[in-house]
Design a binder for these strands. Structure first.
Lengths: 89, 89, 89, 89
DNA sequence: GCGCATTGATGGCTGC
DNA sequence: GCAGCCATCAATGCGC
């Protein structure tokens, strides 16, 4: 295992604080993610309550996302081909 | 946020709008989730840049999360026991 | 951890043999997979030697695979919709 | 299996066939890989049906693989040392 | 040595 | 309510 800024003269507490800060930032972000995931579930549940077929709804979302990804993919391929023929993308 | 109940007599276009609203809300939330996920990656990348071992860092996060879950679990069991013996939790 | 056929009267060596057999079958299959993976790498290397752009080649393969998956996906969705409107698929 | 060298003067359609051949060979190999992967899943499923803990089973496989790699690694180092002291490996 | 691509693991959702 | 399935996410390995 390696340690950051392996400098004997360095103030030690700062390293500890830095690590602590990193961990806390990540944990905070993960909490936010969870909150949003829960919101998504809520929306689906509500939709279900309004008579929508959740399974199909999920498919709709997935398809729209896939289409968006495809567009991005096509752009990437185009760039690749342009590079391959010596054009600047 | 409130929503109209699922009324078969309702004007159909409105339902269309409702569906559209649902899809857009979900997609919006998913985008937010992605933004946060990217933020998390950034923090890890930054930590790596500061010499931290990302793999181990992830373990730290995972362990703390597991411990938190376990504590919650223990609390729940404790509450159960307290209720079982007629105590108010 | 649970154990299979937790029967005290059972012949013990058979359990050991069964587990051994499982592990060996998996390891044998994994070896086969590795062989084939190496073959794939060889083909890419050869293609590269013939002047093909491997990165683009990989994209081609990926796109063809994606398209195949999409066709399957569309079939699945069609089935869903048919079911949703009460048709037998 | 042998292949014609990449000759710029070569008839172009043949190159097209060459590309096609490459793609088909790769796709064929990928299919084989998938077949074997499915076989592996089957074995795990069967093991599960016999009461084995799949998660642990996977660990067993992983550990044995790691150990095998380590042994190979040690052999390689040994060979290096033997060569370094003028011994034939 | 880094980034990418594949592969494996985990957790959530659906159907029985 | 649980098992199987699927989708997401992390980890390993490969190539540049």
């Amino acid at each position: 295992m390696t340690y950051p800024r392996n400098d004997p003269d360095m103030d030690e507490p700062i390293q500890g604080n830095q690590l602590k800060s990193i961990v806390e930032r990540i944990e905070r972000l993960e909490e936010e993610k969870k909150t949003i995931s829960d919101d998504v579930k809520e929306v689906y549940a509500e939709a279900k309550g309004n008579g929508y077929d959740v399974k199909i709804l999920r498919r709709v979302i997935a398809i729209r996302k896939r289409d968006a990804n495809e567009r991005a993919e096509e752009e990437a391929i185009l760039d690749l081909y342009l590079q391959a023929v010596g054009e600047t993308a």
